[in-house]
């Protein structure tokens, strides 16, 4: 293979193709918006995409991996490999602003700042757990809301309820 053939794929194009791969459970955000694609590079002729899993047990991850490879094939990349990288662990802080806006439009309250690299601490567990800040209702914009459950319809979401418009809504947990 000649050098020109090796470089017939522009890395920037690859990022764009991946940006068209949606999260299978929340199709308004792409895998790029989610921040799980950490690196795209060529190793000789093979395209290597490095991704970081969201939650360890997220059932969507396998589908996401398949869809990424499928998107690459559709764009003519036959020789591609996915590397899974655990460290640094995925955080919702890597989610794009556009992704957060799209979540809101879809009826899911986007995540606030995560604790990031702060030391995780369980020493102050009390009856109510951590302080739960009221989230803005993605339907009516009210801040008069409450948490129903820390665990929602997918591992990444908590279930909240608006006390003004009475609608339940998902909150993408800071993680």
């Amino acid at each position: 293979m000649t050098v020109s053939e090796q470089t017939r794929f522009d890395i920037n194009d690859v990022w764009q193709w991946l940006d068209a791969v949606p999260d299978p459970e929340i199709p308004v955000v792409s895998v790029i918006d989610l921040g799980i694609v950490r690196d795209v590079r060529f190793e000789d002729e093979q395209l290597v995409v490095t991704i970081t899993p969201t939650y360890s047990g997220c059932p969507a991850m396998q589908v996401i991996e398949d869809n990424i490879l499928e998107a690459l094939r559709e764009n003519g990349v036959d020789d591609a490999r996915l590397d899974v990288q655990l460290s640094p662990a995925w955080t919702t802080d890597w989610m794009s602003e556009r992704g957060k806006e799209n979540l809101r439009g879809y009826g899911i309250a986007p995540p606030g700042e995560s604790a990031g690299t702060q030391v995780i601490d369980i020493s102050r567990i009390t009856r109510s757990g951590r302080n739960v800040l009221p989230q803005t209702c993605p339907h009516c914009g009210s801040k008069h809301t409450e948490r129903v459950s820390e665990f929602g319809s997918t591992p990444c979401k908590a279930l909240h309820r608006c006390l003004d418009c009475a609608e339940p809504f998902d909150y993408f947990k800071p993680f």
């Binding site: 899993p53 939650y55 360890s56 655990l86 460290s87 640094p88 662990a89 995925w90 995780i120 369980i122 567990i125 009856r127 109510s128 757990g129 951590r130 820390e150 665990f151 591992p155 993680f175």
Partner: peptide
């Protein structure tokens, strides 16, 4: 160490929930 750092973020939620 990498697996532990990844997992502990989830386990923090578990601790809060079962303790509650």
């Amino acid at each position: 160490a990498d697996i532990a750092a990844k997992s502990i973020k989830e386990v923090q939620y578990h601790v809060e929930r079962s303790g509650d």
